[in-house]
């Protein structure tokens, strides 16, 4: 199965849905609106000729200064045809909500939690949208590009007295 077949089949099933079709180094990438994500993904999974039964990864991206700011990238894999497909969905900063794929692919559960934890992208209808990597009481989403890295001044011989005076050393 080649990329052209996938594009033709998808376009026939969902006319005016694919907002971008791109092919780089033989890998196919489709961009779809988030409203049609669930329908398209279910169709890709259940279609007899495609059978993209494996969701390889769910990734969140922060394109600060671009519209839409957030993007969720899905990589699908078809064991039947040994073929990969990349699906991209955008989400604006004011409303960073994308439908959850947990109902279709159980593996999306933790990966969506990670995207929520680190980037603040919310997945509607997710069964338990909680932090997964950062501590539960953490404030903010550290992988957003407008969040400071959390740099602390490095102590050298010439400035260690000033830094150690404020450093919270533990007591017994």
């Amino acid at each position: 199965m080649d990329n052209q077949t996938v594009v033709v089949l998808t376009q026939a099933a969902f006319p005016n849905t694919l907002t971008e079709i791109d092919e780089r180094h033989g890998d196919l990438k489709l961009r779809i609106p988030r409203e049609s994500l669930l329908v398209v993904m279910q169709w890709l999974r259940d279609h007899a000729e495609l059978q993209y039964t494996f969701l390889e990864s769910v990734t969140g991206v922060d394109y600060l200064g671009r519209e839409p700011r957030f993007e969720v990238v899905y990589h699908l894999f078809s064991f039947r045809h040994f073929h990969r497909l990349c699906i991209k969905v955008g989400a604006p900063e004011a409303d960073p909500v994308v439908p959850s794929l947990t109902g279709l692919f159980p593996t999306a559960n933790w990966q969506e939690r990670e995207a929520y934890d680190l980037l603040g992208i919310e997945f509607s209808d997710h069964p338990a949208l909680q932090r997964i990597l950062m501590p539960d009481d953490w404030i903010g989403h550290p992988l957003r590009k407008d969040v400071p890295l959390g740099y602390e001044e490095v102590a050298f011989t010439f400035n260690q007295d000033r830094i150690y005076a404020h450093k919270p050393f533990a007591k017994e």
Partner: peptide, 20 residues
């Protein structure tokens, strides 16, 4: 001892902040 190369939000900058 001091956070090493991981001078960022995720790593404690020296365990002497939490234990002697």
């Amino acid at each position: 001892s001091c956070g090493g190369v991981f001078n960022n939000y995720a790593i404690v900058q020296g365990v002497d902040e939490i234990i002697p």
